[in-house]
Measured scan of single mutants.
Amino acid sequence: LSQDQINEYKECFSLYDKQQRGKIKATDLMVAMRCLGASPTPGEVQRHLQTHGIDGNGELDFSTFLTIMHMQIKQE
């Protein structure tokens, strides 16, 4: 990932990090990914979360979000 991409991801991540705690809700993951041009299915989002041990009510930090985005873009 280039620095530009990382900055773009950070900007989008921040939109969903409403309390500015450095985390977004798992329920916002799909929308955040789509905001960056990825098109994950609900099943793919579920798999990404399970891979990282996050349940549907959990939260993920930016580095986890980056990893998930990277995996998603590689497979699209």
Rank of each mutant, 00 (worst) to 15 (best):
L36C: 12
I6S: 08
E76I: 12
G37V: 01
D4I: 10
N7T: 14
R34V: 09
S39H: 15
S14T: 09
D28A: 06
G22L: 02
F13S: 00
R21I: 12
L1S: 12
D55V: 01
T27I: 07
Q20M: 06
D17V: 03
I24F: 03
P42W: 15
S14W: 04
I24S: 00
L60N: 00
K23T: 13
C35S: 13
Q3I: 12
L36I: 05
L29Y: 01
V31N: 13
F62T: 03
R21G: 08
Q20Y: 04
L29T: 04
S39I: 08
L1H: 02
K10E: 12
S14C: 06
C35E: 13
A32V: 13
M30Y: 13
K18M: 07
F13V: 01
S14I: 05
S2M: 11
Q5R: 12
T67I: 05
K25I: 07
D17L: 01
S39Y: 02
T27A: 11
I73F: 04
S2G: 13
L1I: 14
Q19V: 05
Y16T: 02
M33E: 01
N7D: 11
L49N: 01
G58P: 03
I68A: 06
S63D: 09
D61H: 05
N7G: 06
E76N: 08
M33V: 02
Q19C: 07
F65R: 00
Q19W: 05
L36M: 08
Y16Q: 04
G37D: 09
A32T: 10
H52N: 03
S2L: 05
D28I: 03
C12W: 05
G22E: 06
M30F: 08
M69V: 08
L36E: 02
R21E: 11
R21F: 02
Q19R: 08
D17Y: 01
G58M: 04
M69G: 06
E11H: 15
L66V: 12
Q5K: 09
M33C: 05
G58A: 13
L36F: 05
Q5G: 04
L29M: 08
C35N: 11
T41I: 11
S63R: 05
S39G: 12
M30A: 13
S63T: 06
K10A: 12
P42R: 15
R34C: 14
F62L: 08
H48R: 09
S14F: 05
Y16R: 03
R34L: 10
D4R: 03
K23I: 08
L60D: 00
K74P: 09
Y16P: 01
D17F: 01
L36D: 02
T51N: 02
N57E: 09
L29W: 00
D17G: 02
L29G: 00
M30T: 13
L1K: 09
I54N: 04
G43Q: 07
C35H: 10
S2Q: 07
K10T: 09
C35K: 14
Q20D: 06
I68Y: 01
L36N: 08
I6C: 02
T27D: 13
R21N: 14
G58F: 04
L29K: 00
T41S: 02
R34Q: 14
E11D: 13
E44S: 15
C12A: 15
E11M: 10
K18I: 09
Y16L: 09
N57D: 15
E44W: 15
E8Q: 11
H70N: 03
F13C: 01
I24L: 07
E11N: 15
M69R: 01
Y16V: 04
R21M: 08
R34Y: 04
S14K: 12
